[in-house]
């Protein structure tokens, strides 16, 4: 099966970091993933991962230097902080990590050089967040990208594949449910999919976004989307390796993703949608359709 351009960024990251041994670890002991990179956040992509859990110490993912901190509402001359109280650490290889929504008053504002054993704050709920959770972002200064932290963190146990709850074709303003209608009209259409990942075993709290989606039409790959990294393009943050889609071009609504345009011509059409989570669990959906008109 054709898999397109997967792993391109992973290769770049490996190439970039190959000069030294990487010993990156999770910032908290109890890791319950409740938000994944690229997820829908109202009007923007989530630029990191969110870890739910009890009030617990937060450690650097790797040794480094604290280069910036902000305490929620403490500094009268600071911009309002949707990230709440947060800390930024500079690591080697132009890598920076951001730890957001830390508990108020818990930040270590005295240390500069920190190791993975140091506590930089307590997991909290400050700023624009729907509950107690740590948001971890990783910024790659070499490529000017915000990268999916799961690309660097040790893998989590996850045996559950993302679910494909619905597939639709949008033609003009007509939305067709492909579970119900098997005969389509010819012309341009946008393929939409409602995909939710119910997470790893025992760690399910909230549905997560899929990591990668491949779409094949009559055996040919027509779309490849992956949540690997975000970068700025024409004044908007876009998902790289996913046709540089901006938030409003990627998401149709909170759970429905635009998988790309299809040129529907008369005849049989076999659509194959493969949805994959970060652990590599795949869900495959095959639809046999007809285009008549």
């Amino acid at each position: 099966m054709k898999r397109g351009k997967s792993g391109f960024l992973l290769f770049l990251l490996f190439f970039s970091y190959s000069g030294s041994i990487i010993a990156i670890d999770w910032p908290v002991e109890e890791q319950v993933l409740v938000g994944t990179f690229g997820e829908h956040r109202g009007d923007h992509f989530l630029g990191g991962i969110e870890i739910d859990g009890k009030e617990q110490p937060v450690h650097p993912i790797e040794e480094g230097e604290i280069i910036f901190w902000m305490e929620e509402k403490r500094l009268p001359f600071a911009p309002p902080s949707g990230l709440g109280s947060f800390v930024v650490i500079q690591h080697n290889r132009a890598l920076r990590s951001v730890y957001a929504h830390l508990a108020g008053g818990s930040l270590d504002t005295d240390s500069t050089e920190v190791t993975m054993r140091d506590v930089i704050g307590i997991l909290g709920d400050t700023g624009d967040t729907c509950g107690r959770r740590l948001e971890l972002q990783i910024i790659d200064g070499t490529f000017n990208q915000v990268v999916n932290p799961l690309l660097l963190l040790p893998p989590q146990v996850d045996r559950r594949a993302p679910n494909i709850f619905g597939l639709y074709i949008l033609q003009g303003s007509n939305l067709t449910d492909l579970e119900e209608v098997k005969v389509l009209s010819p012309g341009e259409g946008v393929l939409l999919a409602d995909i939710r990942d119910l997470g790893g075993s025992g760690s399910y709290r909230e549905p997560l976004a899929p990591y990668r989606i491949n779409v094949f039409a009559n055996g040919e790959e027509v779309s490849y989307l992956t949540c690997e990294a975000l970068m700025l393009k024409d004044g908007k943050r876009v998902l790289i390796q996913s046709e540089d889609l901006s938030f409003h071009k990627y998401y149709y609504n909170q759970w429905t993703i635009r998988l790309g345009s299809l040129n529907l011509t008369s005849g049989d059409l076999t659509l194959e949608i493969i949805s994959t989570d970060f652990a590599g669990n795949e869900r495959v959906k095959v639809l046999n359709l007809k285009v008549e008109g």
Binding site: R41, G42, D43, H44, L46, G47, P79, P80, S81, G82, L83, G127, D128, R237
Partner: peptide, 19 residues
């Protein structure tokens, strides 16, 4: 969505992710 800023008679919104 985001936090408001009122300054010099102007009104801005800084989104939650601060970018």
């Amino acid at each position: 969505r985001g936090y408001p800023i009122l300054s010099s008679g102007r009104y801005f919104t800084l989104r939650g992710d601060m970018v």
